[in-house]
């Protein structure tokens, strides 16, 4: 727990009043995972949308889209809205009724 103490030592005096947040450990884990995978440069939703049809079609053809479009793949991991839309387009391309 040394790291935990280290994390807050510097701010201890300036700490604001205690607040409680209704967060489960799964939710905290999910958020920390996102922070961990944050990159300095990330594509925006609009930039991804302009590439999504190419990305989806190549994915449906079995291409390694993660290799070809790493920034799109990364955005889809970080953005639930774009992810949901990508998966919906894939269901159309693969005629899957999930």
């Amino acid at each position: 727990m040394a790291w935990l103490k280290r994390l807050f030592r510097s701010k201890e005096k300036a700490a604001k009043p205690e607040h409680k947040m209704a967060m489960t450990s799964e939710q905290a884990d999910k958020m920390l995972r996102m922070i961990e995978h944050t990159q300095d440069e990330e594509l925006s939703c609009d930039e991804v949308f302009k590439l999504l049809y190419i990305y989806a079609e190549m994915a449906s053809l079995g291409e390694d889209v993660g290799e070809l479009f790493p920034l799109v793949e990364h955005h889809l991991e970080m953005c639930p809205d774009c992810r949901e839309e990508y998966e919906a387009v894939m269901r159309i391309l693969e005629k899957r009724m999930d």
Binding site: L4, L7, K11, E18, M23, S25
Partner: peptide, 16 residues
């Protein structure tokens, strides 16, 4: 107890 302390710390970090 440790986990709940961590959660409180994460929250505090977010506040700060």
């Amino acid at each position: 107890a440790e986990q709940s302390e961590i959660m409180a710390m994460i929250q505090k970090t977010m506040m700060e």
